[in-house]
Design a protein around this nucleic acid. Structure first.
Lengths: 302, 302
DNA sequence: TCACTCTTGAAAGATATTTTCGGATCCGGG
DNA sequence: CCCGGATCCGAAAATATCTTTCAAGAGTGA
């Protein structure tokens, strides 16, 4: 695995501390075992860790200072010192705010009412995490690109394919030219047509779905502006992405596949893109929206 | 010297950070002129000072490191390091304090960060409403029907069509036979094949989408068990539905079409159905889920 | 098994913080 | 006006903390 840090973040100075627990989950897969141990310790007891020096935390987790610093870097901070400050902030917030109500996994014998409650709670959590972790600078850049695009191609397969279609439907409604591709061959074939001023968007939770990366690469190499919507900001897809929008990852369980929360997260991002573009192109979007509304009315029985 | 906290601050945040401004005032008389300058600077902009090193703060206040440390001591901290941590906490608290400006609609000139926050908030609200309004008895009945169905047809057009596909994908994954139809003609053609023991599901927010009602009617008349997922429990679709699952309707605005929240709501219902069915057919579902997971792993690049 | 990459911690190197120490300033009294 | 003593202050040394480097060890695929 290659190490890409630094360049990606850096832009946004202050990270909202609330995002930390979610960030640990999102980035855990790209960490080594020792780093995960550090990250988990930190996420479990921010207040306690804020009181420790690098050396202290290294000893507590049975690792070395170097590992602690590396973990801090992965989490998006320039070094341990800054992580520590963020932890202090988080601790203060936690203390003053509400307790973070733990939820248990969905079990096979849960009554249906519990299933509803737990699912709703989990998805709410996913939304909050996503919103907290979304880089608004990247989002803004993506919106700008979309608003000015000649045409937009959107790639996604499986569950992400539905999200791609959702975004496509929305963009079409406000008069943009957008296509969703779930067939990898056709996607590549079409990507060849893209050029500067066009936009290509790849949606993949894992960040490593070849069928989606390939067309994005082609689009990238043909000069299109590329956007990746992924849960793995270090994934292979990001090397061809001008703008990276990170979706959150909830812990998954046997009965609750990752696809569920990733979809929720992706849809929020997609909605934000849509609204953003609608704002930018308001004069064009507003009439288009009401026109499509009118047209639909006729499909409904009285 | 080693860092000694322990004794001084048994629990982190020995001092409620809100009291800082007051403490500065109280202790000001016992400070020298330079110290007062430091203390005032700190009280005026905790967040900003938290980002500075001793040297930085010394320069900013036109004093020396030693003076900064002395000030920190007067304020009750073992040293500057701890004052800095407290400041970070204070800053975080301050920031989280001014959160709730979310009640308003999304405006054309909202900055992108507000859009994200408002959208996330609205969708969370939608989820809560949906969970609260969902009739678990109806849901349980629908789950039972699905779990025992020979085959399942799902109807939805437009945005609801994507939800139909989402449910279909999920059911297929746990070994059920399901089809999504967005073509009204084909849907009706297929509905004719349904009989007792089969399930038909119609998804329509308005409850009056003819293209979806028609196949459900046919399925109903052929003896299939029918389910309606709709935001209008009094809509036309419900007259052919054995079980009605109600989705919530959020207020919509110009920039936030109803499709957005109805989709969120529908997806929650669909997820509940899926989990419910997975529970009922656990022995079959669990291996099927892991099998599909295995199969997917090969589509991901290393 | 070998060659290779990835992971890890020890220790060197760089920063930041704390302490020390002597000069500067202030003040009251001669 | 000048002096002695007390206080205040900052430069620089001393220390603690953080960061980087580097080589050994663990793991992995050929």
């Amino acid at each position: 695995m290659k190490e890409i840090f630094g360049s990606a973040s850096g832009s946004t100075g202050s990270t909202p501390p609330a995002a930390l627990a979610a960030k640990v989950r999102t980035l855990a897969p790209s960490m080594t075992r020792s780093m995960q141990r550090v990250a988990e310790t930190v996420a479990a007891d921010p207040a306690g860790c804020a009181a420790l020096t690098v050396t202290g935390l290294a000893e507590l987790t049975g690792t070395s200072e170097a590992t602690v610093v590396r973990t801090a870097r992965i989490l998006g901070y320039p070094g341990y010192r800054d992580l520590r400050l963020a932890l202090a902030g988080l601790a203060a917030q936690q203390q003053s705010g509400r307790a973070p109500a733990l939820t248990t996994d969905i079990a096979v014998d849960d009554p249906i009412a519990d299933v509803v409650a737990k699912l709703a709670y989990d998805e709410q959590q996913t939304l909050a995490d996503t919103a907290a972790g979304l880089d608004t600078a990247q989002l803004g850049a993506a919106v700008t690109a979309l608003a000015g695009a000649r045409r937009t191609d959107i790639y996604g397969v499986g569950a992400s394919g539905l999200v791609a279609q959702d975004l496509t439907q929305k963009l079409l409604r406000i008069g943009l030219i957008a296509h969703a591709h779930s067939d990898p061959h056709l996607a590549v074939t079409n990507a060849v047509q893209l050029k500067a001023g066009d936009v290509a968007i790849a949606i993949t939770h894992s960040g490593s779905t070849g069928d989606v990366i390939e067309p994005l690469r082609v689009a990238f190499e043909h000069g299109a502006t590329t956007v990746a919507i992924t849960g793995r900001p270090d994934g292979a897809v990001t090397q061809y992405a001008d703008h990276i929008l990170t979706t959150s990852t909830a812990r998954e369980s046997e009965l609750r596949p990752a696809a569920m929360s990733s979809r929720t997260s992706q849809l929020l991002v997609v909605d934000c893109l849509f609204i953003g573009v609608a704002q930018r192109t308001y004069d064009q979007a507003a009439p288009a929206l009401s026109a499509s509304y009118e047209a639909l009315a006729h499909r409904h029985r009285r």
